[in-house]
Structure formats: structure tokens, C-alpha cells
Design a binder for these strands. Structure first.
Lengths: 243, 243
DNA sequence: ACCTTATGACAACACCGTTGACCTGTTAAG
DNA sequence: CTTAACAGGTCAACGGTGTTGTCATAAGGT
């Protein structure tokens, strides 16, 4: 039964659920997001979502072909929410930094959706808008086209990849997350200097650092490198604009 | 029943399964890896793994506390295989570059396993050795401890994150991968300059760039930034060693 | 007011991870 | 060489999951 899903435009009979809820794709996506935020990523199952909506689980299959389909819709909503309020200021590095942090934060807020969508090109409105914005920032900064694309690609992939990586961490069941912290504290924190001198020497820093995301640091390194690169390009072409 | 798992050293009675297989942690991990590669990440379940091994699913719980435990072992095995033949040369940047590319290649070689395991801290032998090696390279290069840890963290996460991102791409079903390329060629390749000037101006480069991984570029930017950082640190401390 | 049919509900299917109880072959001690 | 302990494989069950075939009914056009 593959034609169970009806395109939203063609939907006409708005019959309420037994419990009196009128379903819609938007309501389902919104409830899914709420469920994830309130009770963690593993709280999202078709059955629980149905329960939260006040509908039979199978009713959702009138709106989404399967769970992946639903998660992609959630992801799309996510892009929109993350970048809705972003505006370029003219300082290209600051703009990119802001964008990167927003994308990363958006991913962290909705881990399951992020891990699912990080590696997919949707070609939908929000995504196109983001691509255009980033390329604009880079070209206005003075990067020649080929270089702008190279930097754009690395920038976006880095944001997506770290977003997925870090949100996978937060999506772990609570027990597993605590186990990870424990591993750093006990296993790595107690290796003897004779066998593992470098870990032993930096154990204190390691334990502290591993509790937080390395994305801000990685992003800043990235921007620093891009700034240097731009300087080289300008020197070569005799352009002396400040950066 | 939490004391079901017996440490491998203490294991003595090697009783074969009904189907004549003698189990071991190594055999289980190896079979899991094979299963994932051959039939996709979804093919890995305790029950299927048991069937593939010729043992009752519950027998695996004598070797691993739960599925997560098993996945960590698989992840560690993956790290071990990727870095087995790496040797430091003394040129820290070249060494890191080599390491990063190996980790990335290792992830690509086992895409489905990589996507499952990239974000976990295993605390096992191979991982510990990798941490020690990377920290060693950085500290010998002259990075002070706090900085070495910061750079280590960003470096490792970048390699893992891009590894996961890129292998998620290659792990997609063929049809989905072709659809993605199609999106770039048609959707992005044909946006009019009036509405999307930056995409239109760089479309040619975009289509070409998106076909390949951005990790090498990102890695080189990372190393360039680290080199600059090291230079600043040396200038500040009056150290004039060459880089 | 009637008919069509979209849409929600129900029940069932085939899986999943995990555990407690059981059974038996291996091994070490006598 | 026998025997008793127990490690380790097996079985059955629990409560969960996504998904689908079928049915009932209320909404909306006529």
C-alpha cells in the first residue's frame, strides 16, 4: 500500500481523531519536535508519537510514507528555524562564524533529525537559500569563484559533520552518556606516565575538554586559515583592502 | 544478571555451540563487521549476529554486556585496522596529515560501521594508543599542554566527523546517490542569475566540487591554522625553532 | 438526503534487545 | 580414573518497535 500518503494540497476531509484531534503534517512534525525536546531522541517512536497526538499510530502513515520520511520533514523544519533570523552584517568572518554556530546549535537541538539529514542534499527552498547566502558572503569578501566554492564546501561540511557528530553524542541514552564521561575520568585519567606519557601529562585538560564540543575551536581555526588564505590571494593580486 | 560477562583472560571452558562454533570476542566482532559491510548497518542485530555465528543470540551476552558494548568493540577494531601501519616521521604536520587521511580512509573503507561508531569513546586499547600518538606528535611539535589538547580534540573530531559524513554518503543506496548528483546538476546548475546570483556564478565549480570529499581541503586548512598558531606561540616565548 | 471515499482505528505480523531459568560438557581436584 | 562444580550455551518469555491489510464511518459534493 504505497499510495496511502495523500499530498497535503489534495487533503480535504478533516476528520478528527477519536480523541478529537485534527491531524495535519504540520501538527505531526511539530509534535515530533516537541517530543524530542522534552523526552529525548529515543522518545520518538511512531507509537509514542501517535499517543502524544491522540491518534492511532497507523494514522500517521496517511501523512508520511515511513519514519525516515517524517524525520526528513522534521529536518527541513529544523533548517528553517535555525537560520530564520540570520542576517549578514558585512564582516564576512563574523557572518560565517554566526552561521556555523547557528547550524551547529540547530543540529544539537534536534539530534535525530540532524544525524539523518546531515548527509542529504534536499534541494529544497531553505537549503538553496543557505547556499546562496554563504557563497555571497565569501564572494563579497573577495574570494575568487573557485576558491569560494572550495571554502564553501569545507565550511558547510564541517558544520554539518560536527553537528551530526555532536548531536549523536547528545542523542545517546543517558546511561551511555554517563558511561562516556566515566571512561574519560577513570580510564584516561589514570593511565600511568610510564606507558602513556602524553596522556598522563595532559589528563586534566583532556577530561575537561572532552566534555564540550570542539566545534567552536575547529570553526575558529577554519576561519583563521581562511583569513590567511585571503590575505595571500590579495597580496598576489596587489589588492590591499583591509581584512 | 550483570555478572554474565566474563573477562576474556579468565575464559577457560571453550564449549562449542550446538552448531559446532567456538565463540570468542574476536570472532563475534569480526563477524559483526562482516555482517555490517555485507548487508548494511540494519543487518546488525543480536539475533541476526547469533544466526550468522551459529549460536543462540543470548550467548553473545556472555561476551558483551549489551549491543552498545559490542559496537564499541567493533569501533575499536576499526581504529586498530586504520592506524595499524602508521609511524611518525618527526614532521608533525605531515604526520597529522597522514593520520587524518588514514582515519578518513578507514571510515570510508567501512562506511556503515563508521557511521555507527564515529561518535563513541571506546576507552579500549586501540583508541588509547591513537590518543597517545596524536598527543605525542603535538607536544613534540612544541604545543603547550592545554593547546595540544584543544588541537587534538578538534583534529580527532574533524577526522571522525568527516569520516562519518562522507561514509554516510557512500553508504546510501545507489539510487539515492544518483538522485543527489542529479539535484546538484539540475536544481543548482540551473538557478537563474537574477534570483541566485552567487550560485549561478559558481555553478560549474559547485557541481564539480560536490562530487568529491571536502575533507582533504578542510584538513589542510586546519593544519595551516595550527601552523600559524604554533608560530605565534613561539614568537611569544622567544623560541625560534623552524617550522 | 444520499453516495463516495478519504481517513482514522484495529489487529496482526515480524522483528527487536534483554533476562531468568535450565541444561550439559569441560575441567580440575581427589 | 572418577567425580563434582560451574562456565557457557540454550530456551522461552517480556515488552517494545515499524509497518500493513482490512474495516467502519463521517465528511463533503451532488
Amino acid at each position: 500500500m504505497s499510495d496511502r500518503v495523500v499530498p497535503p494540497a489534495a487533503r480535504q476531509r478533516r476528520r478528527p481523531t477519536k480523541q478529537g484531534v485534527v491531524l495535519s503534517a504540520e501538527l505531526i512534525v511539530g509534535t515530533a519536535l516537541r517530543l524530542i525536546e522534552e523526552h529525548g531522541a529515543d522518545a520518538l517512536s511512531v507509537r509514542r508519537l501517535g499517543r502524544a497526538l491522540g491518534a492511532d499510530p497507523s494514522a500517521l502513515y496517511r501523512y508520511f510514507r515511513h519514519t525516515d520520511d517524517l524525520m526528513l520533514a522534521v529536518a527541513d523544519e529544523l533548517i528553517g528555524r535555525s537560520l530564520r533570523s540570520w542576517r549578514p552584517t558585512g564582516d564576512w568572518a563574523a557572518d560565517l562564524r554566526d552561521l556555523g554556530l547557528r547550524m551547529h546549535a540547530g543540529a544539537l537541538a534536534h539530534p535525530r533529525a540532524a544525524t539523518l539529514s546531515a548527509h542529504r542534499v534536499t534541494g529544497r527552498a531553505h537549503e538553496i537559500q543557505a547556499v546562496e547566502s554563504i557563497l555571497g558572503v565569501l564572494r563579497r569578501a573577495g574570494f575568487p569563484d573557485a576558491e569560494a566554492v572550495r571554502i564553501y564546501h569545507a565550511f558547510v561540511d564541517q558544520a554539518l559533520a560536527f553537528g551530526a557528530l555532536d548531536s549523536a553524542g547528545t542523542a545517546l541514552p543517558r546511561a551511555a552518556r554517563e558511561a562516556e564521561a566515566e571512561v574519560w575520568r577513570t580510564t584516561y585519567g589514570r593511565l600511568p606516565a610510564e606507558t602513556h606519557p602524553h596522556i598522563a601529562a595532559t589528563a586534566r585538560h583532556l577530561v575537561a575538554s572532552m566534555r564540550t564540543s570542539s566545534y567552536p575551536a575547529a570553526l575558529d581555526l577554519f576561519l583563521a586559515a581562511a583569513r590567511t588564505r585571503l590575505g595571500q590571494l590579495r597580496a598576489r593580486t596587489g589588492d590591499a583592502r583591509p581584512h
